[in-house]
Write a protein that binds this DNA or RNA. Structure first.
Lengths: 170, 170
DNA sequence: AGTTTATGTCAGCCTTGTTGACATTCCAAG
DNA sequence: CTTGGAATGTCAACAAGGCTGACATAAACT
């Protein structure tokens, strides 16, 4: 590793896509693309008093209505204090509703209010528009490859979370 | 937009990969994958007094030795004050060297020192290892698709920066 | 000579992450 | 029934790393 050549071109196979240079290009592509990925929702959010953390919370509450705080914590990978600050403002502002659990009253189940869904829609539309344009330009085969590589790049724990969410989708 | 069906399945073409559900999965894949993407270098950096911002600066100085501050600013997309804070600590700690420009003495050209290259290597190796594993698992066709979609997701300005960097690589 | 450009720096603010400590509620095991 | 532990909320303090605004300096350009 770090020998300036990478693992490619050692055996006779066609592993040129694994050279350090190819990997570096992949790394830089991730960096620049993620900027684009977040740019549109960020622009909407700065007008309000919200940031990217609020967007993430709203996204996943919308995705899995009734999710518990603990579940959301695991998905987002932040501390409960960090999430709580965000959640508190969203609840105060009437975008998120927190209901005490029926079977386990310690748990809080989170739902978007009408207003919350409205904001979620605006943010999603902006983000999806860019994703849709990218997908359309690239074509279905490229999109399949895109998803395959991204999945392989996740921690195994996040891979499971991602798959669970994916399968819960219609 | 936001009609719950997306642009797919309207015409008879095979555009099912453009449904809102597919786009949402792409969005979530980006989110979870980016976490994995930064996880390994982040672990190394927290042991030192450095963060992700230092990593980015080191990466691109290594990528384009002798780059000016202004050029780096454009690549990273942050303010000069933000970059300067990071750069100052790296120079003080002897990881980065700043040389006054020859033709234009206002410019500072940035280089990694021996020590800087050592840290860059550690960080790159960690990040490349994950990228390499993902690329290997996914195969060359998936990797090509991955890069195509990421490029299409960038702002056009960043696309140009990315391409310029790519072409400057051996 | 005057203007513009590249850079550095100081001060202050915001978001969003962290840790640690502690209170409350309440399920579940002994 | 009591008690231990889990889930949640909250307070305080702190750090990284974004931001803006203001200002200084040196060099280049016109």
């Amino acid at each position: 590793m770090g020998d300036g050549r990478g693992s490619g071109s050692i055996r006779g196979e066609n592993l040129l896509f694994l050279t350090d240079e190819q990997l570096r290009q992949g790394i830089e592509a991730m960096f620049f693309a993620y900027r684009g990925f977040t740019a549109d929702p960020d622009r909407i959010l700065t007008d309000m008093a919200y940031g990217r953390a609020h967007h993430r919370a709203i996204h996943f509450i919308n995705r899995a209505p009734g999710t518990t705080v603990n579940n959301l914590l695991n998905i987002l990978g932040v501390t409960k204090q960090s999430l709580n600050r965000v959640l508190r403002t969203l609840i105060e502002d009437g975008l998120v509703e927190s209901r005490v659990g029926k079977s386990d009253k310690r748990e809080r189940h989170l739902y978007l209010t009408e207003e919350g869904r409205a904001l979620e829609g605006r943010l999603s539309d902006a983000q999806r528009a860019r994703m849709r344009a990218a997908f359309r330009d690239a074509g279905p085969d490229a999109v399949a490859g895109f998803r395959t590589v991204l999945e392989a790049m996740m921690d195994t724990e996040m891979q499971r979370t991602y798959t669970r969410l994916k399968e819960s989708g219609t």
